[in-house]
């Protein structure tokens, strides 16, 4: 794991990607600190953190696209497979390197509240809890990006797909407020998700049979629940959409609440996607 970690770190910083990632974060952090704190004399650093969260839409696809797609293209994945390192260690090594690349600019961003506090009364606890949530959000998004890279053959496809996923994640809460609240609407919405889910199963396992049965079973359960208790479905869709959004969880911290369930949610998402990445690489040996 250490070998992979060191190798990754040095490849981030021999190519420009590590610097670009940091530069982007720091550039926008700088701009918003100047606008909010310096020009408008706001004492809330978390407002800056909130405003720069959109940067993830751009930098996550850029930094994660190459992680595994590039290995596949250069055929270097064969080297990794033949080395005496377990796939879990390869993935963890790569993910830790990614986190270090993310933490480097974040460490610099942690200095800003200290500087600002020399000129006014900064709410330190809220500022740092926002930075912490920002880290958790970034970590979860990076794990999703890494997973997408592991299932794609080319970097461009990985980047595109990752961008779409980030975008949906970013806007889903906004969309939720425009989604109908009727029970029927929620049922139809969920059905669409079930169909999507079946497609993903088909893609991952290659078995149409499993996909159709799985989809039908879930749909049957949904229908049964719908028949028995329609009230459960009222406004279910928008509620679910809000719950799913990683950005929405992060926003809670911006409002000055240290939300333990949010911490667990973001950590679980990270763990799940790191695990899925390991599985997707294991699976590739079988195809």
């Amino acid at each position: 794991m250490k070998a992979v970690f060191k190798h990754e770190i040095s490849s981030y910083y021999t190519s420009l990607s590590g610097y670009v990632f940091g530069l982007f974060l720091l550039l926008f952090a700088g701009i918003y600190v100047m606008i909010y704190n310096v020009r408008n004399l706001l004492t809330r650093y978390e407002a800056v953190i909130f405003s720069i969260s959109f940067v993830f839409l751009i930098i996550v696809p850029i930094i994660t696209m190459r992680i595994f797609a590039e290995e596949k293209k250069q055929r270097t994945d064969q080297l990794l497979y033949s080395l005496p390192i377990s796939i879990r260690d390869i993935v963890l090594g790569k993910f830790l390197a990614l986190l270090v690349v993310f933490l480097a600019p974040l460490a610099i961003m942690c200095v800003y509240p200290l500087i600002l506090s020399a000129f006014g009364n900064v709410h330190m606890a809220e500022a740092y809890s926002a930075v912490f949530a920002f880290f958790l959000l970034g970590m979860a998004l990076l794990s999703i990006g890494m997973f997408i890279s592991s299932i794609c053959e080319s970097q461009a496809v990985a980047a595109g797909l990752c961008f779409v996923v980030m975008l949906i994640n970013y806007f889903i809460a906004t969309l939720a407020s425009y989604t109908g609240v009727s029970a029927m609407g929620s049922f139809i919405g969920l059905t669409i998700f079930v169909v999507l889910f079946a497609f993903i199963i088909r893609f991952m396992t290659g078995s149409i049979f499993t996909a159709i049965t799985g989809g039908l079973v879930i749909e049957a359960i949904l229908a049964a629940v719908y028949m028995m208790n329609q009230e459960l479905f009222i406004a279910l869709m928008p509620r679910l959409m809000e719950k799913v959004s990683l950005f929405e969880r992060f926003n809670v911290f911006i409002n000055g609440i240290f939300d333990i369930s949010g911490v667990f949610y973001l950590l679980s998402v990270t763990a799940i996607f790191v695990h899925l990445t390991i599985q997707s690489l294991e699976k590739r040996r079988w195809s």
Binding site: S11, T14, S15, Q74, R75, T76, L79
Partner: peptide, 8 residues
């Protein structure tokens, strides 16, 4: 195909 990291 030799599995080489081209940037190294």
């Amino acid at each position: 195909q030799p599995p080489l990291y081209m940037e190294r």
